[in-house]
Every structure is written in C-alpha cells, then in structure tokens.
Design a protein around this nucleic acid. Structure first.
Ligand code: MN
Ligand code: MN
Ligand code: ZN
Ligand code: ZN
Lengths: 139, 139
DNA sequence: TCAACAGTTTAGAATTATTATAATGTAGAA
DNA sequence: TTCTACATTATAATAATTCTAAACTGTTGA
C-alpha cells in the first residue's frame, strides 16, 4: 500500500529511526491489501524470501515489539509456545482452528458486543478479546 | 473435598493408574473449596510444600496434561511464556490483570452470552472464551 | 501369591522460544 | 564531517517444555 518514503515518515513520526531493517519489515508487514497473522518464525521466513540481506533474529524481535508498542501490531493470546501477531489492529475477534493451527479473523460485525456486568475496583479495561476454538467436525 | 480413596476411584474410572504422585497432585488441585489458577511452577512449589517426597518435573507436566485431556483441568490462553491452568472446568471467562499478572474468574452470570453470527464450514465450535485484560487505572 | 506386563516415574539431556550482552554500525543533528 | 544516541548483530544465556531411556510399580490372572 505504502512506498518506502511513506514508511520512513511513519517510522519517524513514531520516534523510530527508519533503518533499512525496519523499512524492510514494514514492507513485508504492511504492503499487502489483506491483514494477516504471523509468528516470529513466519516473519523470519518472509524476510529471507524477500531479500538477500539477512536481518538478525534479535532485530526481528526488537522490531516486532517496537511496532506492537506503537500500536501497529497486536499480539493474539493463543496458548501456544509461540506468540502470534496480527497486522489487523482494529477491534476484532478470532477463530482458532485447532486442527489446522490456524488463526482466522471474525468480522467484527459478526460478533455482538460482549457485555461484562462486573468490574474490578482500581482497574480499567484495556481490551476484551473473544477466542473461538474450532476443530474438524469429524474429530 | 475428596479423600484419597475417592481420588483413586476417580483416577481408575478415567483409565489412569492411581499412583502415589497422581493422588498427591489430586489432593493439591482438587481438595480445596475454591478453584484456582496455576502455572506448572506454582504447582511444583505447592507440591514441595505439601510433601517431602519429590515429584519430578516431567511427572508434573505429564499429570497436568493427562488431567487436562480428561477434562479435570482447563488451559487458559494468556499470551505469556508460561501456560496457565484452571481447576475450574465449568464455563466461565477471565480478567487478566496485566499490572499484577493475575488471572481472575468472571462469574458466568456477569457475562452476556457471546453471540457469533458466522461459522466456518466443516468446523465445529469447541469453546468460546473471553479474556478481559485490565490494568491499574493510574497507568 | 506372585510373576509378568503395561503403564508410569525419573534424572537428565534436548529442544525451542525468547531475551540479554556487548561490540559494532549508522541515522540524524549540528 | 563529526558526534552521539540509537539500532543491529552474533552469540550466549535463560526459561518453558518435551524427549529419552532406564528403573519402578499397579494390576492382572495363572
Ligand atoms: Mn502447551
Ligand atoms: Mn511475549
Ligand atoms: Zn486477527
Ligand atoms: Zn478460571
């Protein structure tokens, strides 16, 4: 969607230096029409397919965490050994296909707002996430 | 709540041999009035306080996974490095206090049923879980 | 009663995701 | 161009979890 100079602006305006590595990761994460879910490992593979210059694993972690902190990525709580990240930062919920180990967005229009009729004193709500685990019908 | 012979029956009827280690873990997990949440590490600490006989880490993992498979424990998807387990296997949702790293049950009466108006062909729903992340108001 | 077997436990090694370290490199300001 | 704070990197460290393979034990049925 955006070209490099737009990523550079985006990074600068976030207080992040537009380094080669961060721009490349922006291209991979934010160039596509569709949003998607990924693990750090997925991202490392995408990077190695997209470029000959390697980006170190530490930088991938650092960048993903920086983007998450800036709100450009969300981390999705799937109980798993690996963290799942989401380039779709709008409010939405997920199916998790346990047979295929696949995360699928649920269109927000398809979920009635979740009503919680209780609260915890001294705490404020940061997010409300619904995870619908599904599996093959036959199993 | 139950005494040892009841745990033995419970284990036997589940097809699990009632070994010393499993009975001890049953006592720790299911003897208390209130249900609770724990990590493997929490459980290991409880065991070492409750008995002089050590139970190896591998057995703790094996047993927790066996109990989960039998439906005596639930695993709660908090994105974290550690798995959280729940002795409350009835349908309910959670607050996760990000300031205190604390999991708190939400009484099921306090949550309106979550309505999902879409489905995935060939898949059936296994669970619907709501996670409400909260933090200190000041932060 | 007890031998035999399947299932279980165990210590320790292996694996995997993630984070820390500390040296080197670089973007941006002056 | 020079300087400096920030970023990247290779590598080591850490931490959760799983694997391995040998020793052990609950149960069964002769
Ligand atoms: Mn797990
Ligand atoms: Mn994390
Ligand atoms: Zn999503
Ligand atoms: Zn709970």
């Amino acid at each position: 969607m955006l070209n490099n100079s737009q990523y550079i602006d985006k990074l600068r305006s976030s207080g992040l230096r537009p380094t080669k590595q961060r721009i490349k990761i922006c291209e991979i994460l934010f160039n596509s029409q569709k949003t998607f879910h990924f693990t750090i490992n997925d991202l490392v593979e995408k990077i190695s397919k997209a470029t000959n210059d390697k980006i170190s694993l530490a930088t991938v972690y650092n960048t993903v965490h920086a983007f998450k902190k800036k709100g450009y990525l969300k981390e999705i709580p799937i109980n798993s050994d690996q963290s799942y990240f989401d380039t779709n930062t709008s409010h939405h919920h997920h199916f998790y296909d346990e047979s295929q180990k696949d995360l699928i967005d649920i269109d927000d229009a398809d979920v009635e707002p979740v009503k919680i009729n209780t609260k915890i004193p001294g705490k404020k709500i940061r997010s409300v996430e619904v995870l619908v685990k599904v599996e093959d019908i036959k199993s």
